[in-house]
Design a protein around this nucleic acid. Structure first.
Length: 494
RNA sequence: GGCGCUAUCGUCUAGGGGUUAGGACGGAAGAUUCUCAAUCUUCAAACCCGGGUUCGAUUCCCGGUAGCGCUACCA
């Protein structure tokens, strides 16, 4: 018979959701998106987000990884309301649940050793049979099994899957999903050392924490019928499931290290702002209602989010679009917001700005931000604005300072600026244009050459705004050093 | 292999029995200019295949194919 309808119960209740990473690695983008969806869902309904650390695999879980995950969530701006709970500290709950299952005859002791199981699996594979546990110990007499267990023989506890029928559940994104019970294996609940495995601890915890909606990766779909059966055997209410499609690399295989940056922290280090990352991640598999823009701040994301609008197909992670969001956010942020982000970037890059004058910092940031693509630009391409030590871009030098005549003229121009009384934007432009006319050269040639001399880059804001930002003294001395700069560029190119 | 899920521009996706199949990123061209962005204007770009059902399928059904997931005393 087909068991279980989805609960979806307690419509009036505030949802309780959880993000339950396993600390066997850093917070990766897939986990981050799952966390984000949980967070958006909880906030949308004024519910509760619970953080739970699934560290039942003592071998592979480390405190360092837990820390990394917490840090990643904090950087992402995802705040949880309860927890973190650690499964390693809740073993009593799992033992009680296991005892209950044994009591109800929904579980049995299994004395098969690892070696035996492996042998049988290998043989099954050889013969082309499914490598399913065939229930050797399920046939054991109950009292006999108990006697052996009591006598000290090591035993795992297995769940007894119903012999017939099917198990289905209603998924908020996939709809009804059904599995034949004959496909399911009598999985292990308690290892022979008494520690719980994933299925038991997850279900016991989700029931205990009164989780109403389980939002997790689609890689868990196949696990779900086992868990549904567990809920039923435990007499617990079945939550609503929402499986979100996986994130893929450009080659359409599951995103992993070999695709490059996969840890959330790597994106912070690459100068991505958290809000841009959140916005991009939210759009990976979820679509706002029609007519909505894609640039969506947190409050709008929260307001518009819905499990129904989650796509069923896996999505390729598109770095280029992330970068577009990043540039877009940097451009729209007020300089005050950017300053603290940029200061963190400077600390990382060991760059100390030549001045701490706040007004100057803010106006310079405002000047630069329209063409920034990453926070890193403020310590990289824009370095010359904040520090006197910078490497010229050899391509830019090649393009605009190759002509020695131009370089000579810039030297002469430097002297004009040196002796000028008024160095305003208007006046510095007038001086340069008059100078160009006098020498019979195009102003553009001098402007472009100056830009490279002053910033080391071929790409920068309007030249006279640049001059204003870096000031008269630095403008003059950099123009004077144009030969040196050209030489340095040639050197670095070689 | 078995089971499950999925399939619209290069990518993220909207749509849905009759549409010029819409948007965003990216791409191309042009305008602008002091370089590069930005901005504005244009353009190119998609319904996996085969059968049904139907007056009509990209849409509904079935099959195939492909991709992904699961198939542990990992989570």
């Amino acid at each position: 018979m087909s068991s279980n309808l989805s609960s979806g119960s307690g419509a009036a209740e505030k949802p309780r959701v959880r993000f339950a990473p396993s600390p066997t690695g850093y917070l990766h983008v897939g986990g981050a998106r799952t966390a984000l969806f949980n967070w958006l869902f909880a906030r949308h309904f004024g519910g509760t987000l619970i953080l739970r650390i699934e560290d039942t695999d003592a071998e592979r879980s480390t405190a360092e990884m837990v820390d990394g995950i917490l840090q990643g969530l904090k950087w992402l701006g995802i705040r949880w309301d309860e927890g973190p709970y650690y499964q390693s500290q809740r073993t009593e709950l799992y033992r009680q649940s296991a005892a209950k299952l044994l009591e109800a005859d929904a579980a049995y002791y299994c004395f098969c050793t690892r070696e035996e199981l492996e042998q049988r699996r290998a043989k099954a594979a050889e013969e082309g049979r499914p490598p399913k546990y065939e229930g050797t110990c399920r046939k054991l007499d109950r009292s006999e099994a108990l006697r052996r267990k009591l006598s000290g023989q090591p035993a795992a506890l297995r769940f007894a899957i119903p012999e017939s029928g099917s198990t289905s559940f209603d998924d908020a994104v996939f709809g009804k999903v059904e599995f034949s019970n004959s496909e399911l294996e009598d999985f292990v609940l308690l290892r022979s050392d008494g520690t719980p495995t994933y299925h038991l601890s997850v279900v016991a915890d989700d029931a205990d924490l009164r989780i109403t909606h389980i939002v997790r990766g689609a890689d868990h779909i196949s696990n779900t019928p086992k868990q549904v059966l567990l809920y039923q055997a435990l007499g617990a209410a079945i939550p609503m499931f929402a499986h979100v499609p996986l994130i893929l690399g450009p080659d359409k295989t599951r995103l992993s290290k070999r695709h490059g940056a996969t840890s959330v922290m790597a994106y912070r280090d690459e100068g991505i702002v958290p809000e841009a990352f959140r916005n991009y991640l939210a759009l990976l598999g979820w679509t706002p209602p029609e007519g909505m823009p894609e640039m969506l701040g947190d409050s709008e994301l929260i307001r518009l989010f819905s499990l129904k609008a989650i796509s069923r197909a896996n999505a390729v992670f598109d770095r280029v679009k992330l970068d577009w969001f990043n540039a877009e956010y940097i451009r729209t942020y007020p300089a005050e917001t950017l300053l603290s982000l940029i200061e963190a970037e400077w600390r990382k890059a060991h760059l100390t700005p030549v001045s701490n004058d706040r007004q100057w910092l803010l106006s310079t940031i405002d000047l630069l931000k329209p063409r920034a693509r990453s926070l890193k630009d403020f310590s990289g391409a824009f370095r010359a604005f904040f520090n006197d030590e910078f490497e010229p871009d050899s391509q830019a030098v090649d393009k605009f300072l190759k002509d020695e005549n131009v370089r000579a003229l810039l030297l002469e121009l430097a002297r004009r600026y040196e002796t000028c009384a008024d160095f305003s934007e208007q006046e510095s432009e007038r001086i340069l244009r008059d100078f160009a006319a006098e020498k019979g050269v195009k102003a553009g040639a001098l402007i472009n050459g100056s830009r490279v001399a002053l910033t080391g880059q071929g790409v920068a804001p309007s030249l006279f705004a640049v001059m204003h930002a870096i000031g008269k003294n630095r403008t003059v001395s950099r123009l004077k050093r144009v030969e040196e700069l050209a030489l340095a560029a040639r050197g670095s190119k070689a």
